[in-house]
Design a protein around this nucleic acid. Structure first.
Lengths: 250, 250
DNA sequence: ATGTTGTTTTAGGCTCGACTAAACTCTGGT
DNA sequence: ACCAGAGTTTAGTCGAGCCTAAAACAACAT
């Protein structure tokens, strides 16, 4: 299908569809860049489960195609084109995750892997139809913001559950979609986006936290508490929330 | 994600997931085999829009992996394993087409291309959830039978619209999903699976056929009429219709 | 029986995306 | 100010899938 005769070299600029691996690189670099300013070769390698040398090679190609700039030994940064491509893939991924959970009933811990494959195969048309069927959601089942088709994202930074003060109450907003075990456990203790959570106590050692989530009082470890992001609970407890619809539904 | 360290050679037998191209080859060979007994190299090449030499190479690999048998210069035949794999891919394709049209509102002429890409990326779980959401359909939007998950298919052979006798009435059952223009035109004249069609007249030259479909009487060419498959209309007719000429069948 | 024609296979190459091993560069600690 | 270790890049390979050009073969007509 996508066979190009070798007579025509790399399509000059009008390369609308990237390969799966390229989309994965751009996505990973985007996320790393957001965290610590720039993405190191080994970080990308770690994120994609690939040898560092492979990353160097791919980076050279992507730099040549104008998706990023690379200062040898110094790391990599996306260009506008690169960022746009990354956000497009992230949008696809998150809309797919939303659709799979909300329409097709997938458990929230298994959609990441599925979306990871589909995001490279789905057409824009399909993605937008899914988004429309969902009422154009602004966040995915794990609370991650969905970039718009125009490439803008909600960039708010949230506090970690681990950083709450004892006695403080907050609303769970987000957690990484990458760890199925963690997600299954969170579902078990009902700690999902939109849930109210109060930090009841902090054990003196090992960072164990006692929470209150609904009726239960689960005890969780620090790795979990560092992964879960929260925002201040609405000051007026049960008043109509004028927050953007955080999809706590299901 | 699916990176295998080279230390482990080709996974011996437990290769559950084939590559996209391999699935395409098996699917194409299956369809060709169904038509004329065996698939010739050049036929496969034509179906996949690939050079014949490429087919020879791929065929050698697939024969080595036990998906087909190849008698040089004589063509190729699927083994049971090959047929199973082909039917699995065809099932995915047709369920995807069904879901895309019936749930997401895609026009029936555009689902083929979309399904062609998604069929290689969707998990069995996703496919079966879609099938369930559709009530486990037995045919796709173009009337093609959907293989079961166990690998059985409805193998009925139908007559072509082109072969109806003048005056004969039939039910449209199936048309290839591969030609968007044809499909758009068929939708325009309401000639879709389930539609009742009567052959009113056959022009002496060029094979032009005058049909009755619902209220309209479209005139269609022979290429169209050869692509559309029909079955005998239910014997209980509606009302006394003006069926004058009882022309001899052929 | 032989030659012509069309199909198929072989031979040799190419790109993409990955690998290992070895060389290089940066940086932090003494 | 230097040097060891961590991180990065280069060099050389590999497999999957594709290509073109040329050789091999089948089959049919003469």
């Amino acid at each position: 299908m996508s066979s190009r005769k070798p007579s025509e070299p790399p399509p000059p600029v009008s390369a609308p569809s990237l390969t799966g691996p390229v989309e994965d690189y751009l996505k990973a670099i985007y996320e790393l860049e957001r965290r610590h300013g720039a993405a190191a070769t080994s970080e990308v390698a770690g994120a994609l489960d690939v040898a560092p040398a492979s990353v160097t090679g791919m980076i050279r190609r992507l730099a040549g195609q104008g998706y990023l700039t690379h200062v040898p030994y110094r790391g990599v940064q996306l260009t506008d084109a690169g960022r746009r491509a990354a956000l497009r893939t992230i949008r696809r991924h998150r809309i797919l995750e939303s659709y799979l959970t909300r329409v097709l009933g997938f458990p929230w811990d298994s959609v990441h892997a599925e979306a990871e494959r589909l995001e490279h195969a789905a057409s824009d048309d399909l993605i937008e139809r899914m988004a429309a069927a969902l009422g154009n959601p602004t966040s995915d089942p794990h609370g991650a913001p969905i970039p718009t088709a125009e490439g803008t994202v909600d960039q708010r930074a949230y506090r970690r559950l681990a950083d709450l003060a004892v006695g403080e109450r907050a609303t769970m907003v987000q957690v990484s979609d990458k760890n199925p075990q963690l997600l299954r456990y969170l579902a078990e203790i009902a700690l999902q986006p939109g849930a109210e959570v109060t930090l009841l106590a902090r054990a003196p050692f090992d960072g164990l936290l006692t929470l209150r989530v609904g009726e239960t009082e689960p005890v969780v470890g620090s790795t979990l508490a560092e992964q879960v992001l929260v925002e201040d609970a609405p000051t007026v407890p049960l008043a109509p929330t004028h927050r953007k619809s955080r999809s706590g539904s299901r």
